[in-house]
Amino acid sequence: MTWIVWRQQRPVFITLAIGLVVAVAAVLVLRAAMVADLTARNLVDCAVKGLESCRGPASNDFLNAWFDKMHLAQGAVIAAPALMGVFVGAPLFAREFEQGTHALAFTQSVSRTRWMATKFVVAAVPALLFVIVFQVVVHSWLDAAGELGPLATGPFYFTTFEAQGVSPVAYTLFAYTFGMFAGALFKRTLVAMSLTLGLFIAVRFVLTGTREFLITPTRIVSDDPSKPALTDSGPLVVDSGFLDAKGAVVADSAPLMNCASRGDEPVVTDFAACYRKNGLAQSYADIIPAEQATTLHLLEASIFAGLAVLFVLGSVWAVRRQV
């Protein structure tokens, strides 16, 4: 049975293999070119220590040349799961139903469940491998850029978060299983493909906006209300504002921040004192620390994995009712 699915999926696998070889080669060439550029511009130390240590035309030119390219590579890692759902998941059952070849399998000794399970696994493995290998290669490129690349903005920057950790695999499982389910339900490859793309984008969009609520944030406080509580760009800021003398959140702080000079009053120089006088005792930020990025990855991945399980069950139901 494994051989049959492998043989059926062979054109898909060959396409995936060629695509992966081309993509990996391109990323490796870009990485090598970028590393050479870093050395040529004498920025190797800067990539380790951060932009502050080497402001100047060299780092600016480097960023102009490479920053967008690296973001584009992250974008490709983010798009790969959708491609797997549309081109591997959606046609998996839809094409069989369209061409009637499911009846060929259903009229043999092999059970429908085994047929389904074999198709599911054999087609999924190369798709997942593609995403994982591509993700690792792109990450090794971004890693080489260090503090001069997108990783410098911390693990929560949205393209970084979604192209890292277990997220791409979770997105792939979600897209692949939904494609499979839509194909088994509607029995039309094109319908299943369009639905997969649409739903994938919609669900990803919604969960991108809400994933910060999955973790209870940590509150950090600055005793100087005129300074933001958080100075580091790594953690994810969920909320920020001011606390009054009792430590309660000030709901509307805008009028209390009016410390600009008016008329002939002396120019305010001590903003902290002015803020305190107005009742803003401390500034705070509710953050998710960078160390919790892995936890957030796992939490979000578990939502996508849960949806994937539902879609697998839905596919089983749809295939079993098929005549």
Binding site: I4, G100, H102, Q108
Partner: peptide, 30 residues
């Protein structure tokens, strides 16, 4: 499917991109 029954359906479904030999191999596998 009862093991003693064979059904040839109206559409005569076969995997289009298989060779005849591969179809028979699929029959052995299933």
């Amino acid at each position: 499917m009862h093991p003693d029954v064979s059904l040839l359906t109206q559409k005569r479904p076969l995997y289009e991109q298989f060779t005849v030999r591969e179809i028979m191999r699929a029959g052995a596998a299933m």
